[in-house]
C-alpha cells in the first residue's frame, strides 16, 4: 500500500519540503505516480499513444508535478505530559479569586463593598457552626424541592396531554403559550394576596417558574419524535399505551431533560426573589437581615451557597442524562 507507506514515512520524517530528498522521497513519490495517470487519462489516450501504461512520472508534457504535502499524525511528534483537564479548567477561577484577595488586602476593595475571600471563608465557618446557614439552607431547599415537584408534574402532565392528543393541543397549548409570555415574577403581589406571605406563595412562585420550561421542552420533544419509528412500532402491534411508554416518551426524554435543566435555573432564581420579598427564614432572609447591618461577608456567603446549589443541581441532571441517555452517540465536541 503506497499510500499508507508514505504517511507512515511522513510521520517519522521531519517536515520535508515538496521536492523530496532522494532516499526517503523515493517512496513518497510512489503515491502521486499511481494517481497521476488516472487523473490525466484522457490526455494520455489522445496525445501520447507511444507511451503505454506505467509511464514514469513527469514523462508527458501535460503532466504536472503535484505539490507534495507531508501529513503528520495528530500529536504524534510532540507528546508532552498533558496538564490534567480539571487543573486547566480551575486556573481561571483561581486567578480571579487571587485578584479578589489581592484587591481586598491592598485596600483597593473596601470591606464595605465586598469582604475578602478569607473573611468569607471564616464567616461561612462561623455560620455553619452556629447552625444559621444549615437552617436557612434546609428551608430554601425545601421550597425548591416542592416547587420542582409541583411545577414539574404540572408541566409534564400538560405537555403529555397536548403532545399526545390533538384535542389536548387545542385545549392546553394556546393558554400555555399565552401565559408563558407573562413575567411570572411579576405575579408576586397577586400571589401574596391569594396565598399570604407564608410558604405557599413561595412554593407557588417556584412552581410557576418551573412548569413552563418543562412544558415547552417536553411538548416540543414529543412532537419531535421520529414518525417513522412510531409507524414501525405500530406495525409490531403495540397498544397505544405501550407505544407511549416504549417509543414516544423515551424518544422525548432528551428534550425533557433539557427542560428540567433549564427549569432548575429558573427555580433558584424564583426562590431568591421570593425569599427577598418576604420571608422570615431561608437563605434570602439571611441576606436581607445582613443588609440591615452591612454584613457583606454574610451576603457573599449566601450568594456563594446559591450558586453552589445551582451548580450541584445542574450536575445532578447531567448525571441523570448520562445514565438515561447512554444509548446516544451524539457529537460530543472536539
Amino acid at each position: 500500500m503506497p499510500a499508507s507507506e508514505s504517511t507512515a514515512l511522513a510521520v517519522t520524517e521531519p517536515p520535508s519540503s515538496p521536492p523530496a530528498p532522494p532516499a526517503a522521497g523515493a517512496e513518497a513519490t510512489v503515491a502521486p505516480r499511481t494517481v497521476a495517470p488516472r487523473t490525466s487519462a484522457p490526455a494520455v489516450a489522445v496525445g501520447a499513444a507511444d507511451a503505454p501504461s506505467g509511464a514514469p512520472a513527469g514523462a508527458g508534457p501535460s503532466r504536472r508535478r503535484p505539490e507534495i504535502e507531508t501529513l503528520r499524525a495528530a500529536g504524534g511528534g510532540r507528546r508532552r505530559r498533558p496538564v490534567p483537564r480539571w487543573l486547566r479548567r480551575a486556573s481561571g477561577p483561581v486567578l480571579l479569586l487571587a485578584l479578589w484577595q489581592l484587591g481586598s488586602s491592598t485596600g483597593f476593595i473596601s470591606a464595605q463593598t465586598l469582604t475578602s475571600p478569607a473573611t468569607v471563608v471564616t464567616t461561612a465557618w462561623d455560620m455553619i457552626k452556629d447552625g444559621s446557614l444549615v437552617d436557612g439552607l434546609l428551608v430554601s431547599l425545601r421550597r425548591v424541592a416542592y416547587g420542582l415537584l409541583f411545577g414539574g408534574i404540572a408541566g409534564l402532565v400538560l405537555a403529555v396531554i397536548s403532545g399526545l392528543f390533538r384535542a389536548g393541543e387545542d385545549l392546553v397549548d394556546a393558554p400555555m403559550q399565552m401565559l408563558r409570555t407573562l413575567p411570572f415574577l411579576g405575579l408576586i403581589p397577586l400571589l401574596i394576596i391569594w396565598f399570604g406571605i407564608g410558604e405557599t406563595s413561595k412554593i407557588v412562585l417556584v412552581s410557576l417558574g418551573v412548569a413552563f420550561p418543562i412544558y415547552l421542552n417536553t411538548y416540543a420533544a414529543i412532537r419531535d419524535v421520529d414518525g417513522r419509528l412510531v409507524e414501525a412500532a405500530g406495525t409490531l402491534g403495540l397498544r397505544r399505551l405501550e407505544l407511549v411508554r416504549h417509543v414516544i416518551l423515551p424518544g422525548a426524554l432528551p428534550g425533557m431533560l433539557v427542560g428540567l435543566r433549564y427549569s432548575l435555573g429558573v427555580a433558584w432564581l424564583a426562590l431568591v426573589i421570593a425569599e427577598q420579598v418576604n420571608a422570615d427564614k431561608g437563605l434570602g432572609y439571611l441576606m436581607m437581615n445582613a443588609r440591615e447591618f452591612l454584613q457583606t461577608d454574610v451576603i457573599t456567603v449566601c450568594l456563594i451557597v446559591y450558586s453552589l446549589l445551582g451548580l450541584a443541581t445542574d450536575m445532578l441532571v447531567r448525571l441523570l442524562e448520562k445514565g438515561a441517555l447512554s444509548w446516544r452517540r451524539g457529537f460530543s465536541g472536539q
Binding site: L229, E231, P250, W327, R328
Partner: peptide, 12 residues
C-alpha cells in the same frame, strides 16, 4: 414489515 431503514428504537 421490514423497511428500507432499520427503524430500530435507539434507546432499547
Amino acid at each position: 414489515v421490514a423497511f428500507q431503514e432499520p427503524r430500530l428504537l435507539p434507546w432499547k
